[in-house]
Design a protein around this nucleic acid. Structure first.
Lengths: 223, 223
DNA sequence: TTAATAATATGAGATATCTCATATTATTAT
DNA sequence: ATAATAATATGAGATATCTCATATTATTAA
């Protein structure tokens, strides 16, 4: 992890205005952290010292269960908060956050600002919206995971993440995300290829029948 | 649905102070609604006119999927908000909310207060905490549902809801909540009885081996 | 460059869970 | 009180998903 100083720090502060996030001056105390790919921004089970706001990059939220299974709970992108649960709740089991790509965040020391933040309507309004979206997405994913087999959820995921008609995600990540075994994920990929929905290109998959995948994914959506 | 007026309304306002929820006077505009058991407080797909705050009773959040499956997403209890998603988000698929018991709520007309509420730090702070807990619970349920079979999740649910050692929930509700078929739920109940963890008493189940259920449930929890 | 590690791949057999059919028993409405 | 509806109950067979074993191929570190 690298902390930006001086000109570099200044440049980021200027280029990514945070005026819409806080109604009191925080610039002086804000740090700018850069995490490398695969580096842990927060370690599972350890309370973070900072409230983060992601300005560049992608990360993943992980939790490890007692039986050793690992769930990839969600992806984090630019303009997401990290560590807000620990800011708000005194008791909270901290989940692990790992950078997927190089990730740059604003980092605000919690102990120094907690009281002020909890009285700042501007900050709270943004955070509330963020949390409401987060809670909604979680509820949606939850109910979908219970109501539909992998076939539908994978079709949706392929369409969401494909880049110019080509799906390139890593299987190991995706089976943690969709909560199925590696073996079963591969079964369904094979099935999609057999049906002609996808065609394997090395380690990637080319979408051949967009509409078939779309139909499978559509079943997840509301009326 | 009944709207309390005059003395009855006044009594509820006095007995359930809302001073900690808002920093501006709302009493004049607050309605008090009483819903009967099984009545819909919000209908799925229809935007509500009110932000509700539950003061008595219990309710359930439902969503219906395209394939006809119904998910019971969560339970709502006293001191929970209802309709906060619609207050915060312009586009939102409204889930259905049904009273499980007689339920009494404060009801604040959204259109009249939206702007003020979104600038009220006291209100936002409470709501933020509520949402953070909600998002956390959803994430937890989600990851658990993917990582563990019904056996573990049911053991946890039995211990959570049993009343003096007796489990009394309705199977039809529980299979929507735990996201499994009625048939499978019954299989696992039979299994628990065969193992001697539970004993059937009419339509209820008496817990016979608390520690066995506890062990199964414990697997869900973090280290 | 080589060894170690991570990711992909596939088979075989087990288990968790679902669908559908059909009864029986409560509960609710007429 | 009777009929209609909701909830409980159980069997049989199908399918979705898991575990484990074992290879092969990339990627990373020594």
């Amino acid at each position: 992890m690298e902390i930006y100083k001086n000109e570099k720090r200044q440049r980021y502060l200027e280029e990514h205005s945070i005026a819409h996030l806080f109604s009191f001056p925080v610039e002086e105390f804000i740090q700018i952290h850069e995490y490398q790919r695969d580096e842990w921004i927060i370690q599972e089970g350890m309370r973070p010292y900072f409230l983060f706001y992601v300005i560049e990059g992608k990360a993943k939220i992980y939790v490890t269960h007692q039986n050793g299974k690992v769930s990839l709970i969600n992806f984090i992108n630019a303009n997401d908060y990290i560590g807000e649960m620990e800011l708000l709740n005194d008791v909270y089991y901290t989940k692990g956050i790992q950078a997927t790509t190089k990730t740059i965040c604003f980092a605000l020391p919690i102990h120094h600002f907690r009281t002020q933040l909890l009285e700042d309507a501007k900050f709270l309004r943004e955070l509330t919206k963020f949390l409401s979206v987060k809670a909604t997405l979680m509820a949606e994913k939850y109910s979908q995971s219970l109501a539909f087999p992998l076939e539908n959820r994978l079709a949706d995921f392929i369409l969401e993440t494909a880049d110019e008609g080509v799906y390139k995600e890593k299987h190991v990540t995706v089976c943690d995300y969709l909560g199925v075994s590696y073996r079963h994920l591969l079964h369904v990929f094979t099935h999609f290829c057999d049906k002609g929905y996808l065609q394997k290109k090395g380690r990637n998959y080319q979408i051949k029948q967009y509409h078939s995948l779309y139909e499978l994914a559509q079943v997840l959506k509301h009326k």
